[in-house]
Amino acid sequence: MLVLAAIAFTALLGPLAIDWRYDAIDWNAVHAAPFSPGHLLGTDSVGRDLLARTLVGTRVTLGVAAAAALVALVVGVAWGAVAGWCGGRIDEAMMRIVDALYALPFMFVVILLMVVFGRSILLVFIGIGLVEWLTMARVVRGQMLALRERPFVTAAEAAGAPPVTIILRHMLPNLAGVAIAYLLLTIPQVVMIESFLSFLGLGVQEPMTSLGILIKDGADDMDMAPHALLLPGVVMVTLLLCLTRLGEKLRDRFTL
């Protein structure tokens, strides 16, 4: 948790503290080694400061991931809640749709979208969010079904609470823990997809950067300059580890 906060904080404010902008090229220091003067962690193959790029990249990646996860959260919770509450035929139909969508090679549809409509960060995270809501919808529906059987929901009905009140005041608050847990678990997925797209050259566009792009660049010449892979790699792996751990902990605590 602390590590997470530290990474997010540094990524937000860090770029202000560094002399180099993420896209500025230092012609005097192409492929500089770490700890060279002026570039604490060295530069990449065209002389851009790695530390600055990593910080900005982290920010972009986190931003995309958070936005996509939020899209997934909203769509997933709404869909799952409606299906779980209505039950019966409506539930059956809505879950069939989710099943069907699950069977789609969505990665490829996203790639298609990117190719067709050009690349934009907006599209990246809308696309990803639309893939990731499926799991959220399934989980939320399952929880709704479990909650609906709880006597306190029946008691609320007997107390005269209309369905909207029951959903808003009893069910959604009891769902929140699980939803947040899956939100956290969605973020690593999104980060992976983002980096995958970046690898294909379909992610955010140069000179903008992201963790995925940095790792791809680093991986490209890792025999020459392993440090260029190391920093973004370490940031990404730490980020994902923390998010996964935290998400799993929350999930185990709140799942009914």
């Binding site: 690898f199 995925g212 790792i215 990404m236 994902l240 580890l241 996964t244």
Partner: peptide, 11 residues
């Protein structure tokens, strides 16, 4: 195992 799931295959 968690590390493996967090490492992109292109790394």
């Amino acid at each position: 195992a968690t590390l493996l799931t967090a490492l992109p295959s292109f790394v």
